[in-house]
Design a protein around this nucleic acid. Structure first.
Length: 473
RNA sequence: GCCCCCAUCGUCUAGCGGCCUAGGACGCCGGCCUCUCACGCCGGAAACAGGGGUUCGAACCCCCUUGGGGGCGCCA
């Protein structure tokens, strides 16, 4: 019989949920879902000074927005400090740990010396076998793991393959600080064990940590979980992701108008593949995902591809759903998109009607909003430079003459409006474009818009005629 | 400095010794469609980092070099 899969996502709440963390969470979530197991969430707030409630909220919100719901209650690591200390004491009692009275200055000197001599920068084990009676008075000791000094430690990583580390490279790491608080190394191991985590899926910046942690598992005689260290995501320039270029919080992507599913689809293809599949439904993602198909090379973040995927999902979305998604964003992006911060019921209806024409052209929800702004602009509508240049004297006269047939068009439907415009062009001996372009400028204030017949139909006869009158000679 | 990981088009990747004169996607270039912009469709340029091996045969296996990345905290 096989034990159920339990994965965990364990962010430290020192900032928002960035793109790399989001992908780690996604992989954990997919793996758990694929095997019908659980993904637990643990907030690694052992460092109280650097952890903030805002960051915790941002992380939780980010996960929810991406649709990565975790199972069970969130575990806050700092609440488990006494259990961590208890384990350290157990290791002390079993002889797998010892007290070390070295001062921070001594340790710094030790490191500097090792580095200058070309040796590995490790704790030298000064207090490993020293008589505790030699302990200096008034110094609170740390508790260190008594790590094996010979042999090697193997991590059979699900992504990286077998990774062997010589134990000489692993020093006696600190388990408990001099103030009695647990270190990260101790906390993760104890928590992963207590939470019955079967698969540790995390960034490969933790790969060397895995060997150190394995030593703690061994000292406690606990079974080792499976490890999967996934490569990091780099910025577009190949350098480590920083705030400069892409390490934005997922909330920033939300505000840029990306859809959660586009985000998931983009992220899952960064490092993982299923043959040539590019557009992947959630259902397929879950049934196809496995760690053995995760690559080992780091990937670069590419906005162009994310945008393309987002456009795809926008086009595939229902009109009402898109309209609602934009409406939710309006308070934040309304100004940027030249849209009101909220739409009236009537405006909302028009927006939904316009959606089929709008969504073909949008790459983001912000772009979608901006492209619909002309529908709600107040006269005289703002005109961009290129549109203004289209409205020559001749063009304005054509618009004036166009008023007549449009005034008689009945009923005001897409078909009738198209017929009227084509008929007018023929009678005036003009190509449709010669009419459509200045008309588009007058009606939308732009040179790019949905099809001109759609624009007329959407605007209605009265508003159309008024906007034309604003520009006609 | 020491240790570990990585390396296919600009980017994400397929490839798991012969199916590869290396496939797909994004982007780019050209064309078609056309009232603009998109969408869509058709076509094109574009990669196995370098050098040694192993093998009848290497993008795939081994070694070295180079180039990236990560770790070496009383941070997580």
């Amino acid at each position: 019989m096989t034990t159920p899969v339990v994965t965990r996502f364990a962010p430290s709440p020192t900032g928002y949920l960035h793109i790399g963390g989001a992908r780690t969470a996604l992989f954990n979530w997919l793996y758990a879902r694929h095997f019908g197991g659980k993904m637990l969430l643990r907030i690694e707030d052992t460092d109280r000074a650097r952890s903030t409630d805002d960051a915790i909220e941002a992380i939780l919100d980010g996960l929810r927005w991406l649709g990565l719901e975790w199972d069970d209650d969130v575990v806050y690591q700092h609440t488990r400090a006494t259990r961590h200390a208890e384990i350290a004491d157990q290791m002390l009692a079993s002889g797998n740990a010892y007290r070390c009275y070295c001062s921070p200055q001594e340790l710094a000197e030790m490191r500097e010396k090792a580095r200058s001599e070309g040796n590995p920068v490790l704790y030298d084990g000064t207090w490993r076998d020293r008589d505790p009676a030699d302990a200096p008075a008034g110094v609170d000791p740390v508790i260190r793991l008594k790590a094996p000094r010979t042999g090697e430690t193997l991590i059979d990583d699900l992504v990286q393959g077998p990774v062997v580390t010589a134990n000489e490279q692993l020093d006696d790491l600190i388990l408990l600080r001099s103030d009695g608080s647990p270190t990260y190394m101790l906390s993760v191991v104890v928590d992963d064990h207590d939470m019955a985590v079967t698969h540790v899926v995390r960034g490969d910046d933790h790969l060397t940590n895995a060997a150190r942690q394995a030593l703690i598992y061994k000292a406690m005689d606990w079974p080792l979980p499976e490890f999967a260290h996934i490569p990091l995501i780099h910025g577009p320039d190949g350098a480590k992701l920083s705030k400069r270029h892409g390490a934005l919080g997922v909330d920033a992507y939300r505000l840029m108008g990306y859809l959660p599913h586009a985000m998931r689809n983009y992220l899952v293809r960064l490092g993982w593949s299923h043959g040539d599949e590019e557009i992947i439904s959630l259902e397929d993602m879950i049934s196809w995902f496995d760690l053995n198909a995760v690559g080992r090379a780091p990937a670069r973040f590419d906005f162009a591809k994310l945008e393309n995927l987002n456009g795809h999902y926008i086009r595939a979305s229902e009109d009402a759903v898109l309209s609602a998604a934009v409406a939710d964003l309006l308070p934040d992006i309304g100004q940027e998109a030249s849209m009101p911060e909220a739409l009236t019921t009537e405006e909302g209806r028009i927006f939904v009607d316009a959606m089929p024409a709008l969504k073909e052209r949008a790459k983001t929800l912000v772009g979608l909003a901006a492209s619909g702004a002309f529908l709600f602009a107040r006269r005289p509508i703002p005109m961009d430079d290129k549109a203004g240049q289209l409205l020559t004297g001749d063009a304005r006269q054509i618009l004036a003459r166009l008023t007549v047939p449009l005034g008689q068009t009945e009923p005001w439907t897409l078909e009738a409006v198209e017929a009227a415009l084509r008929d007018f062009a023929e009678r005036e001996n003009l190509k449709l474009g010669q009419i459509a372009q200045p008309l588009r400028a007058a009606l939308t204030g732009s040179t790019a818009s949905p099809g001109i017949f759609d624009v007329l139909a959407l605007l209605g006869r009265d508003e159309t005629l008024r906007r034309i009158a604003d520009q006609a000679a």
